[in-house]
Design a protein around this nucleic acid. Structure first.
Length: 271
DNA sequence: AGAGGTACCTGGCAGC
DNA sequence: TGCTGCCAGGTACCTC
């Protein structure tokens, strides 16, 4: 379930269990993810010590004394902390053991995720280098979006989901942020005003920030088997609500497909 | 260069 | 109960 809030929740969940710890073993059961897991992951990690657990967009970076593990959870991936020796299921592709006591387990049924490797000191990678700013960072603003959008001939929804424009806005939160700011997802990005981009930027920050806060609930029982309580269903205004009444005006929400993705909006409230 | 479509993979669910 | 087809929170890559 990884959009940016889930990835950040994962980062916060695993960090206290692995930061500063030593890796004692690596088990790769299925190396065929989106790209094959490079050999350095199993060769270089054992004996290394974790120095930082960070995030860039939806990528997680586990920096160690011998190199950096770059991971993406794709559509169905998860990372959990479990006791050493926990039986592995069909889609438990990688285990990284710490201090012989517990493991960081990568599970991903669809295998759209990845685990890649950066040599020590390397911070640049093709997957990272062209990413746009963090939506919760200082660089991101309505003014920024306005400037970037002037020459673009794509719908506003596609625009904000473009990771070169801004990272971390997935399908759910794109739908929600456009609803919150009253913008029709089909409107051309180049024809959205500066004032409306201010509202959109604020909405993106708010919806992602709220979701991260709600993710804290998941965080507490992180080592248990998932289950996403609070946030989903309760806080969503449009995603997954096709045909149901708009929370603002009561008219039935419309669903269309844009770029193959489910897009739900209120034809009355979003112009 | 930018826009649009396809591909990767498995599981769950609606409909027959 | 079982089959088929469609859908799913992502994104790199190919073509036009």
């Amino acid at each position: 379930m990884p959009e940016l809030p889930e990835v950040e929740t994962t980062r916060r969940g695993i960090e206290p269990h692995i930061d500063g710890r030593s890796i004692t073993a690596v088990t790769i059961r299925q190396p065929r993810l989106r790209w094959p897991i490079p050999q350095q992951v199993s060769k270089s990690l054992p004996g290394a010590r974790v120095q930082a657990v960070s995030r860039r967009g939806k990528y997680l970076l586990i920096t160690t004394s011998s190199g950096t593990l770059l991971a993406h959870l794709g559509m169905s991936g998860s990372l959990r902390i479990l006791p050493t020796g926990t039986a592995a299921g069909k889609h438990d592709h990688v285990d990284i053991e710490f201090d012989g006591a517990h493991i960081l387990r990568f599970t991903d049924p669809r295998r759209f995720g990845c685990m890649l490797w950066l040599e020590p000191g390397v911070t640049s990678h093709p997957l990272l280098d062209s990413l746009g700013p963090e939506p919760l960072g200082d660089e991101f603003s309505g003014e920024y979006l306005f400037k970037r959008s002037r020459t673009r001939k794509v719908p506003i929804k596609s625009f904000i989901m473009d990771s070169q424009v801004v990272v971390g806005v997935g399908n759910i939160y794109a739908n929600e942020a456009l609803y919150m700011s009253g913008i029709n997802p089909r409107r051309m990005a180049g024809r959205v005003s500066a004032a409306r981009f201010d509202e959109l930027a604020t909405a993106i920050r708010q919806v992602l920030g709220n979701a991260i806060t709600a993710g804290g609930t998941t965080l507490r029982d992180f080592t248990n088997s998932e289950g996403n309580p609070g946030y989903f269903k309760q806080s969503l205004n449009v995603y997954g609500r096709r045909g149901l009444p708009c929370n603002g005006c009561g008219s039935a929400l419309k669903e269309i497909r844009m770029g193959g993705r489910s897009t739900v909006y209120c034809t009355a409230c979003q112009k």
